[in-house]
C-alpha cells in the first residue's frame, strides 16, 4: 500500500456511509480517491482511475464514462434514480453504482472521512 493513501472497498463505503447499492458487480473494488462533477468530458479529463465519482448525471453515457475513465464506482447524489436499462448496462460492463441521499458537497465530505 502506498504511504499516505487510504483505501476503502466500495462495499465498505456503502456500509460506513449508509449509502445505497444500485449496481454492485465489483463490490470488493478499492477506492483510492474521489472526484465530483457532472460535465462528462471534464470528469474524463480530471478524475483518476479508482476514484469514487460523485455526480447527479443519470443518463446512459455515465456508464460509458465510468468504464472508460476506470473509476471505482459512481456515486449518485441526491438519490438520483437510474432507468432499469441503464442499470442493466452497468451490470454488464462491471460498473459499481451507489447512491447517496445527500447533495454532492455533503456526499463528498462523507466519502472524505474514509479516504
Amino acid at each position: 500500500m502506498t504511504p499516505g493513501v487510504t483505501r476503502v472497498k466500495v462495499s465498505e463505503l456503502i456500509e460506513k456511509a449508509g449509502f445505497g447499492a444500485v449496481t454492485l458487480p465489483d463490490a470488493e473494488r478499492e477506492i483510492k480517491g474521489a472526484y465530483a462533477g457532472d460535465l462528462l468530458s471534464w470528469v474524463m479529463g480530471r478524475a483518476k482511475a479508482d476514484d469514487a465519482w460523485i455526480t447527479i448525471m443519470s443518463n446512459i453515457n455515465v456508464v460509458a464514462v465510468a468504464s472508460l475513465a476506470d473509476v471505482a464506482c459512481v456515486v449518485l447524489a441526491e438519490d438520483v434514480e437510474l432507468d432499469a436499462e441503464i442499470k442493466k448496462t452497468a451490470l454488464e460492463k462491471g460498473i459499481n453504482i451507489i447512491s447517496s441521499g445527500k447533495p454532492i458537497y455533503e456526499t463528498a465530505l462523507e466519502i472524505g472521512r474514509y479516504l
Partner: peptide, 15 residues
C-alpha cells in the same frame, strides 16, 4: 444537457 459540450473533447484527446 447530457453532460457533453463542455469544450473539453479535443483538449482531452490531446491530454
Amino acid at each position: 444537457s447530457l453532460g457533453f459540450g463542455a469544450g473539453m473533447g479535443l483538449p482531452n484527446m490531446k491530454r
